[in-house]
Design a protein around this nucleic acid. Structure first.
Lengths: 135, 135
DNA sequence: CTGAATCCGGTCCGATACTG
DNA sequence: CAGTATCGGACCGGATTCAG
């Protein structure tokens, strides 16, 4: 029916198991998914995937992020253990951010998703155009 | 350094290429990523991955979604061509939603991400606890 | 250079009530 | 059964200003 059907079936089964549990407290999967969709998190992760960066360096490479959101997003990523923050006691001070091992392990799953996105964009946009014309 | 390093390197390179383009208009990758993080989209996709569902059936299987958001999210998914909507002209009327081929092709990338989330949750929560205690 | 603090508009989304 | 319409709070995130 579609490529990767068997693999998909496995994921569907696992998903069914996961949500079948009473899930004491908020669902951890949703929690992670929220961060993925967060406006800047994944953008920064992929930027840091190319190597460690300083604060303003990140600000230059992701021009349309505000200082506030850059600080906040980096702090959240650090809190989740995806990014490590190292302060150099120089003058003026400089701070370097780098992916942790956990953060690096996220590159492949995100990459899979980005690859899907790039491949599917034409069909999605075509579908949108058609949908909007009908309605 | 970490498992999947070679694969990761490929994704990093591709990502660099993707963002290097001037990106006329809004970045399509961000556009898709936004939908992933959308509060309900992926939850519905994974629920529909198990098979077609009627409206109220979905409402029962995802209890904490409001009628409004269920309608709205399904319409957005339909607009993007991920979900097909079929109306049966019965009394009372019934409407069935199912994943399109495009929607099905999303199961594997999402599944990869969910698998990462499940595997990484313990480390993430440990990191959060540690971070909160320090600060 | 690397932030923190504040203000504020826009958007998301839940609750509720109504319709064919 | 399968929606639509409206209201209102909460939160996200941008712009600006101040600080170590």
């Amino acid at each position: 029916m579609f490529e990767g059907q068997d693999t998909a079936a496995i994921y569907v089964a696992r998903w069914a198991d996961a949500v079948a549990t009473p899930a004491a407290g908020p669902c951890p999967v949703r929690d992670v998914l929220d961060k993925i969709g967060d406006k800047w998190s994944m953008l920064l992760v992929m930027t840091l995937a190319a190597g460690p960066r300083r604060f303003n360096q990140l600000h230059r490479e992701v021009p349309d992020i505000s200082q506030k959101m850059l600080t906040q997003t980096l702090r959240d990523l650090q809190r989740d253990g995806l990014v490590a923050r190292q302060v150099f006691d120089t003058k003026p001070p400089s701070v370097e951010y780098r992916l942790t091992d956990l953060g690096q392990s996220l590159i492949v799953p995100i990459g899979t998703l980005i690859e899907w996105a790039n491949k599917s964009i034409p069909r999605i946009e075509a579908s949108r155009t058609h949908f909007d014309q009908v309605s």
